[in-house]
Design a binder for these strands. Sequence first.
DNA 1: TTGTTCCAGCTTTTT
DNA 2: GCTGGAACAA
Length: 721
Amino acid sequence: MDITPIIDPLNDAQRLAVTAPSQSMLILAGAGSGKTRVLVHRIAWQMQVEHIPAFNILAVTFTNKAAKEMRHRIEHLLNISTQNLWIGTFHSISHRLLRRHPKAANLPESFQVMDSSDQLRMIKRLLNSLNLDDSKWPPREVQWFINAQKDEGIRAKHMLETYDYHQKQMLMIYKAYEDLCQRSGLVDFAELLLRGLELLRDDSDLLAHYQQRFKQIHVDEFQDTNTIQYAWLRLLTGDNNNLFVVGDDDQSIYGWRGAKIENIYNFQKHFPIHSVVKLEQNYRSTGTILKAANHIIANNSGRMGKELWTDAGDGEPCSLYAAFNEQDEAFFVIECIKKWVKEGGLRADTAILYRSNAQSRQFEEKLMTSGIPYRVYGGLRFFDRAEIKNALAYLRLMSNYHDDASFERIINTPTRGLGTKAIDEIRAIARYQNLSLWQSALTLINLGKLSARTSNALSSFLQFIKDLSTQTNELELYEQVKLVIEKSKLIELYQKEKMDKGEEKIENLEELVNAAKLFDFDQNNEEGMNKLNTFLTHASLEAGESQSSEQEDCVQLMTIHSAKGLEFNTVFLVGMEDGLFPSQQSIDDIARLEEERRLCYVGMTRAMIKLYLSYAESRRLYGRESYPRPSRFLKEIPTDLIQEVRIRATVNKPIFNPQNTNKLINESSVFKLGERVLHDKFGEGVVLQLEGSGAQERVQINFSEVGIKWLMLAYAKLNKL
DNA sequence: TTGTTCCAGCTTTTT
DNA sequence: GCTGGAACAA
């Protein structure tokens, strides 16, 4: 057997990790150090060399994309099919377990998965039925609370009785929410994980079975695991002690949604027999970019300690642009891109990365007017669109009459004379008698208390859903979907909508039929599930690409979070300002600030050849002009790695140093160093530096109120004191 | 039922 | 200052 393809492409550290004997292992893999490669080759090694059957191997990731890529690469490397190999996200694997053992998990066989927008709607309805004021109990906050509890493995029944009113109410809502989900046969994302954990924890036979089966467990992006996922891994690993995890504590950027960076620190404690391998050689970026990133991350405490290096050479220094305002910043970035393209570069090799989505607008506008194609990541995903959700709601209700969320979504979409009044009555009965909305509607009809018109409308709606579900039972999946879209008159509804909005929605519905046609049932198959349910689950678990795959060469715009795992030739890290990045909310909390710093590290290490950093000295934010300081992270990069684009002798220094006189001082300026001045907005200050002349003349002033600012003399109204 | 007006909110996001 | 959602009027 030839094992060279498995071990030849690896460096020493990677090889050490891949070929180590079976045991628990922690691979600390820096950005761009080949972590996926190690994971893929490790699995290949176990299958080919140690002859471990695919059946005994489990690999867990966080995103569907990562799971797909891993599977693909293993197939490519070994040239075999990986049917028996379980590779999937935590959620999809947990879901699979629940599908296999619905009874043990106390779920109906036809249970369906809710995504977070479904969950939010459900909570809104629940609050309504509990007569709780939306403004006092914001649904988003409730959602956050419930998910946070579940992420920690805490059920309503585990929570202690408390006399705190707020806490008490939250607990009551949580309990009601759990009941409603159970009755409707609906499971949210956090529930998937929690039920999965409880299933294994409480059923020792099942646990033994899966421990027996999954002798080798591999985990990607381990630093992002939350409490439940970690507990689940520990449980499943049991005495096998063969947990192989790959992660990077320096790239943990999801603490705010429950990820526990401690999990990676605790690994060595909880898995006493293990080894640790560090992957520090980087194959992506230039030496300069790595040095800059290393310097930034070195300011964090409690790191496991890694230093990236490359033998690829230093490359160009990073460029820093101090923009006058956010317009100027966008202008600068786009000029750079134009130049890059003119010299033959691909637009797709450039990325504009920002901290918050709101920042994308100015870049979009400028790109638009310059006629440069671009793509913004992170918009509405395909299965999140209202029209798609409506169509899916019909399908869901057909397969499970008690799915209240879907029932309520479509009972009057398109309108069929069942307005708020009718719905309120149905809800009231449902709540009073603890029935599903479907059952409650039936009861209402039988009681004969509704007006003839409402009663007719309601029973024909119920009949309509029933008919649809029997009529389509025998059809192919895509024909089912097609028929439902036609019969539900959704198309007619959107045809009435003005302009091309409705047009687009109809196109999306057609795309849904297409998606059903292309749906690979075999690959998603779960024994005992029909095609429709499999497809519906797929729709919840995998939200789909946000845009149809037009493969035009375009500039990439996204948040730093969504850039994780990607790489680009040229990266523009924009909005490097205190209050934006690091974000205002994180500035006073060391732990959160360190997460922002890791985010900065992630952003910088996306760049292969050239990294541009920029900030604006003035920025319109929430309708107000703000004058932020340059990001504190900029000061953590040694000056010799950075080249300022604008002619200025020094980076903004926070401390006034009279010895550090600027060589570009304009002697003819009306202002002198050390002179006291008055500004409309900022009040009194002292001139620290001067540069440029005429319209370009700028002064640096230390204001007693707001600190140090650079101002353009042409714009700032300054008076001598 | 639709269009208008008003009002809160405003990091990051995958499943 | 803008946006999305909810409340309201016609």
